[in-house]
Simulated assay, not measured.
Amino acid sequence: MKIVVAPDSYKGTLDQYEAARVMVEGLEEQGHSCIMKPMSDGGDGLLHCFRSEGYDRIIVNVTGPEGNTVEAAYYMKDGTAVIETAEACGLHLIKGSHPLDRTTFGVGELLMHAVDQGADHIILGLGGSATNDGGYGMFMALGGAAIDEAHLPLGVFNRDISKVSELNAQSLRRFDGIRLTIASDVTHPLLGSEGAVRTFGPQKGIDESDLDRFEGMLVHLSEKAADVFPANHADTPGAGAAGGLGWMLLNISAEMQAGGELVAEMIRLEAEIRQADAVITGEGKSDRQTLGGKAPSVVADLSKKHDKPCHLISGQITEDLSDYFVGTYALVERDEDVKKVMADTPFYLKEKMQEIFPA
């Protein structure tokens, strides 16, 4: 059989590329022919989808979320740059800082570097960020400025936002002729009970008692931004992605696109599915939310379009998804098996592949 392998990551164990490699290895041992197409909905691991797509990997030193220098990578081909913002402000880079002492400054540096390398289309995945600064740091890196009530310049960290008396975008880097596309499955607004702080803040170390304080900072920033940006994107779906980084990107004329659909288009997934006998996708944990634009649902939709059987192999499946996939298979069949499977996910994933697709 010719099988397209298009999983998302199995969080905590395998990234998209690693999961696809394990699947392919198991299938090829059974005599099947495979096409490897790691997938993402714009969240963690976006870059892994482009490792085997002919893109150049570019390494650059940027400012990390805690203000120190970190090494970040992005991919580029034919004027299109793919940036994962977590490379510059991700949770994996945190070494113990308080959420007040973080910044998205490095994201702006990545954008500037890509433009200087000749990018005319930049795609930004917003998953995995450690920041809640509404893109304030990125704004500063792109040439924006902020002053306090004494007309003194402010720093680039989250804690500086409450002191902003005025934002100045006079020297802000313009992206004329450059298309900025946000790849994200997040639909949260910037503010409110469903906004950036209250939805994602606790995951980034903000204590329950501090949520109002951080919410107030973003309210204050959005009020000051109204003086320099013509449109108010605070309520735009996706503005709350990456701690409000999505909102600032919208302010500088980025467009929002469903991450899974965008990635599928860029890696030419549909063309491969059209020629396949079967399709496999998967993720760490699947439930009914998987069907709301997550990578496996995008793969399934393309498979249905071309009448190809699509199988879901996930770490855990907690709700019945058999109406959406031809076959659904969980690596963890009982709660007590979670630690065992996570300790050696490649073994269980490969075993499951060979069980489903024998020689």
Rank of each mutant, 00 (worst) to 15 (best):
195 G>T: 10
122 I>Q: 12
85 T>Y: 11
129 S>K: 09
53 E>M: 14
202 P>L: 00
136 Y>M: 09
327 G>Q: 14
208 E>M: 13
24 V>F: 10
342 M>T: 03
235 D>C: 08
122 I>Y: 08
345 T>L: 02
22 V>T: 05
4 V>A: 04
242 A>T: 12
8 D>A: 15
58 I>F: 00
108 G>F: 04
291 L>E: 11
152 L>W: 09
296 P>K: 01
279 V>W: 04
80 T>E: 15
64 G>M: 13
295 A>L: 07
1 M>G: 13
249 L>V: 04
199 T>Y: 06
8 D>R: 15
213 R>W: 11
171 S>L: 10
226 A>I: 03
114 A>E: 02
140 M>S: 09
281 T>A: 13
131 T>Y: 14
311 H>I: 14
50 F>G: 02
204 K>W: 10
313 I>G: 04
7 P>F: 00
172 L>C: 06
29 E>F: 04
81 A>H: 08
352 K>E: 07
215 E>W: 04
40 S>G: 09
19 A>H: 03
64 G>S: 08
41 D>K: 12
214 F>M: 02
324 Y>R: 09
261 E>W: 04
183 A>R: 10
106 G>F: 05
176 D>Y: 09
214 F>N: 02
174 R>H: 15
251 N>T: 06
13 T>W: 00
167 L>T: 06
113 H>K: 03
112 M>N: 07
257 Q>W: 05
10 Y>V: 14
295 A>P: 13
77 K>Q: 07
14 L>Q: 11
358 P>F: 02
90 G>V: 08
335 D>W: 07
351 E>P: 05
79 G>C: 07
87 E>S: 01
92 H>A: 13
276 A>V: 03
90 G>A: 07
225 A>E: 07
293 G>M: 06
179 R>Q: 14
347 F>W: 03
237 P>D: 08
103 T>H: 11
25 E>W: 11
236 T>P: 04
82 V>Y: 05
263 V>H: 07
298 V>C: 11
336 E>N: 06
339 K>L: 12
114 A>H: 01
167 L>I: 03
90 G>T: 08
263 V>I: 15
340 K>Q: 12
246 G>F: 01
199 T>P: 06
356 I>G: 11
105 F>K: 01
251 N>L: 03
59 I>M: 10
338 V>Y: 10
61 N>W: 03
290 T>L: 04
90 G>L: 06
76 M>E: 01
327 G>H: 14
104 T>S: 15
170 Q>P: 03
136 Y>F: 15
19 A>E: 05
314 S>W: 01
112 M>G: 10
137 G>E: 11
193 S>A: 13
198 R>T: 12
110 L>Q: 01
344 D>T: 10
166 E>Y: 14
13 T>N: 00
55 Y>R: 00
262 L>I: 14
48 H>M: 12
324 Y>I: 14
3 I>W: 05
301 D>T: 13
141 A>R: 00
121 H>N: 09
72 A>G: 00
331 L>T: 14
339 K>W: 07
5 V>P: 02
84 E>C: 13
68 N>F: 06
255 E>C: 03
191 L>D: 11
